[in-house]
């Protein structure tokens, strides 16, 4: 059964490209200037999934981001890939919001958008790595969620979704609206077509970007931004200054292997 008029909102975030992260070798300080910004990788997979549903069911795809004016770049990229409508949430009072405050702002914007059937989000942003915004948005909108989506089928208003954990696979059936979070295992994002790029990056493309500020949303600004957030950054420092080769010493292989495993888990690698 083919559904018409399905409406999908994709939440995307512009992040610094951490693969291009550079350190000043003399001072050990992170070089921020010229650090390129990209669409968060998991979010691109979320957008691809929405566009796949657009191809299949003629769904309408709305890309939503919050950030500085520079974040228009990711919206243009989303348009070039095939998003129908793009919205930037931009207000100085929103800066410094933690994940819960961000979810609250996105929820307010989605309420303003009005009707929707599905929200797609990346599982995790590669800058902050909180992985919380998706589930918190679902909670604030009071809709069900499926995280770590691996398979998706839609019949009428019903979604059949398979999610993974480390060791198990669950398939749930549920009615829309629903929020889904995805990562790069789900699909391979499309490359924008030449036509798509031309349309997105010309003057008409720029004009298509809607910009909403605090006054456009039903939101209590006391509850968002750096002051309104429930969590605060206490301190930050750089970890990986330079590749310093450390040879792991130990009595025997067992001891060396053990300290290596310890180091790797301290670094969040295993």
């Amino acid at each position: 059964m083919i559904r018409s008029n399905m409406r999908i909102i994709v939440c995307i975030k512009q992040v610094p490209d951490t693969n291009e992260f550079k350190i000043d070798l003399e001072t050990g300080i992170m070089i921020r200037e010229g650090l390129p910004c990209v669409m968060n990788p998991d979010d691109k997979n979320a957008l691809e999934e929405a566009l796949r549903l657009k191809d299949e069911y003629n769904a309408e795809v709305i890309a939503l981001t919050m950030g500085p004016l520079q974040a228009k770049d990711v919206l243009k990229e989303a348009m070039a890939m095939g998003a129908d409508e793009v919205i930037l949430i931009n207000d100085l009072s929103f800066a410094g919001s933690d994940s819960l405050a961000t979810a609250a702002i996105l929820a307010a914007a989605i309420e303003r958008i009005g009707h929707y059937d599905m929200i797609l989000c990346g599982m995790q942003a590669m800058d902050g790595n909180t992985g919380q915004t998706g589930p918190q948005l679902a909670e604030l909108l009071n809709i069900p969620q499926i995280t770590y989506l691996k398979e998706l089928n839609i019949i009428d208003n019903t979604v059949t979704a398979t999610k993974w954990t480390e060791s198990e696979k669950y398939t749930f059936k549920l009615n829309m609206p629903v929020l889904l979070t995805v990562n790069n295992e789900l699909n391979d994002p499309r490359i924008p077509t030449m036509m798509g790029v031309m349309k997105a990056y010309d003057e008409a493309g720029e004009k298509k970007i809607k910009v909403w500020g605090a006054n456009d949303l039903d939101i209590d600004i006391e509850q968002v931004g750096i002051k309104g957030s429930v969590t605060n950054i206490y301190e930050s420092c750089l970890t990986h200054i330079n590749r310093v080769s450390t040879i792991i010493e130990g009595e025997d292989e067992k001891e060396m292997a053990k300290s290596l495993a310890m180091k790797l888990s301290e670094l969040n690698l295993i």
Partner: peptide, 20 residues
């Protein structure tokens, strides 16, 4: 005080939840 690694393993940051 809660500490985590972010920015692709490049940044170590600590956070608190003071009033909730």
């Amino acid at each position: 005080i809660q500490t985590k690694v972010s920015f692709g393993g490049n940044l170590l940051s600590s956070a608190i939840c003071p009033n909730n």
